[in-house]
Design a binder for these strands. Structure first.
Lengths: 340, 340
DNA sequence: GACTAGTGCGCCCTTATCGTA
DNA sequence: CTACGATAAGGGCGCACTAGT
């Protein structure tokens, strides 16, 4: 048995105070201390309060490693960032920060820790112990997700559901509906010939395109052109399309960054927005609102998305059957489709 | 003693394989397994490889909680975000992401985990156990930092050193020199009457102003005006200055976002950039390069800054005396101060 | 005696179970 | 039944030690 030490003895040693020390101070056993600190009804209120008071005054802090070992739970969730670290990333900055902000809020409120890591790292080191994995940056295929899934932990992915999805929960915004809102808006504006820019290898992008075609109706012609995420790609895609002979009256970007790049290309060619060409983006990042010509877009509440991810993960971890929700979307009409 | 179970027995139970199980498989004791997995020279190479092979094939994973309990180390560093979550934050998105990216790289390479949390949370719950705390978002005074410091962990802050700093290490970029570079550039351009926008309550901003005044020389007149971070604040500050009668030939923002807002105000007033007014920012965010009139700025390598924070923290945690470096800065001249 | 390769036991701190007054 | 305690995990690692050169 470990030798108990009094508070004054402890002061010099640099050893951290344990429950046993606290128990001796209070004249009870350590299990009683444990219960008291958890507000258990198995300890009488006065005893409970006295112990909690002692804990405060002596600066006692629970040893999480010991608790985790005993409970076989870590009270932590790993958030994996699977994004290229270049300027042109698939998930732009405000989106990422919104998601992480929401996750932080949700997880810390439930007293879970958020461990941030990269996809490489999570596969390389099996030593990271957490109760679940949240994946940001679905990518174009499932090999990476499959590998993570094999770790056997609750696993939640932000993105769009795919037929090939394995044993994990995919949560995303209502991309189909977002696309449809854009299609309907364009139809109402009388636009007929739409250029859609995006990489359909990403399921989210494919869903947005499907929605666009449905929402636009039979009279609308939609030309899809492969385009990476990012402003430069959007700009280049528009240049290439026009040089390739495309003549239409609307451009839809699979993301705001793509659409902002598209607007750059149009402005450089002196094509009037919105008169000669309307432009619509997707995501609702601040830069879309602050652009020289404010960009019409489909907004998603990224903070809420993060909370949704967190809530689903916590439900799974705590044993409840999680029911994956879909994040609602909203069309924001701005100057890029509608003159003042 | 825990009952050892063979691999086949284990399969059904859902119990995770332990070192003891692995030891029995290999016909050695668990301490030998422990050493083998750490590539210790105390175990002969053939035995070592056999054990590592067994660990792989049986999917053994080290129980971190147990190791942490035993070693009294957590192999994790807490990164505290102290930022207002509004659109107008003191630390803009790319900066934050650069810092976190650098930290991630540095910490995961050393096999440390990055635990993300908020300032509120870190003070509220004393139960988060990590080996050190890194603070992003120094703020204007030291009360918060003082409270965190009292937790008694290695503590590293991103920002600028202040006279009132307590028992922690502050790491930051060379704000004084960055300001001086701006001053010298303006002097070389023949500009004499400079408006500086920023909140001097932030030490970093105060240092940049001091540098600016020194670099500009005796003939330069610098008017400092209090201004929050963010585009809207920058725009409003310029409007107010001009309406208040300020007439000068240069504007310096304490951040790129402020300077971008300032440019908006100037464009709205038809003041020609750079002919009638030059504008300079600070930070080197992508938006500065992509602005309608690309913004001259002082660039900082945020990724490197994150690595610097991480390296300093690891040195402290590992017991080496950390020597805080300063991040170099670089002036990037663009169209907002120099016509093509 | 010194060295190598490996072992037995206890400790790290908390909590669940069962027992007792 | 209420309020509390003794004991035993939970898994990995360090110390002191040994068997064999």
């Amino acid at each position: 048995m470990t030798k108990r030490v009094s508070a004054s003895e402890l002061a010099g040693t640099g050893r951290r105070m344990t429950m046993d020390d606290l128990a001796e101070l209070a004249g009870v056993s350590k299990i009683t201390v444990s219960r008291a600190l958890k507000d258990s009804a198995l300890v009488r209120a006065p005893v409970r309060e006295q112990i909690q008071q002692l804990a405060r005054t002596h600066g006692y802090r629970l040893n999480t490693a010991a608790r985790n070992l005993r409970l076989r739970r870590n009270h932590s969730v790993t958030v994996v960032i699977n994004m290229t670290p270049t300027a042109d990333r698939t998930m732009s900055d405000p989106i990422f920060l919104g998601l992480v902000g929401g996750l932080l809020q949700c997880l810390t409120a439930a007293n879970y820790r958020l461990v941030l890591t990269t996809a490489d790292q999570v596969l390389a080191s099996g030593d990271h112990d957490s109760d679940g994995i949240i994946f940001l940056g679905q990518g174009t295929d499932d090999t990476l997700l499959g590998q993570v899934s094999e770790m056997g932990l609750p696993f939640v992915v932000w993105g769009a559901r795919r037929a090939t999805d394995g044993d994990w929960i995919t949560i995303g915004s209502d991309n189909r509906r977002g696309g449809a809102l854009i299609g309907q808006h364009l139809a109402a504006l009388g636009r007929r010939d739409v250029l859609f820019l995006g990489d359909q290898e990403h399921q989210e992008v494919a869903d947005r395109l499907t929605g666009l075609e449905q929402g636009g109706g039979a009279t609308m012609r939609v030309t899809a052109r492969a385009c990476e995420f990012g402003m430069l790609a959007g700009r280049a895609a528009v240049d290439a399309a026009i040089e390739g002979g495309w003549r239409g009256d609307a451009i839809v970007g699979a993301s705001d960054m793509i659409a902002l790049g598209a607007m750059d290309a149009l402005i450089a060619r002196n094509i009037a927005i919105p008169d000669d060409m309307v432009v619509i983006g997707y995501d609702g990042i601040p830069a879309a609102a602050n652009a020289a010509i404010p960009l019409t877009t489909v907004r998603q509440d990224w903070q809420r998305a993060g909370e949704l991810l967190g809530e689903t993960m916590l439900a799974w971890v705590e044993g409840t059957q999680p029911n994956p929700e879909t994040l609602p979307v909203e069309l924001i009409v701005r100057a890029s489709t509608q003159a003042d």
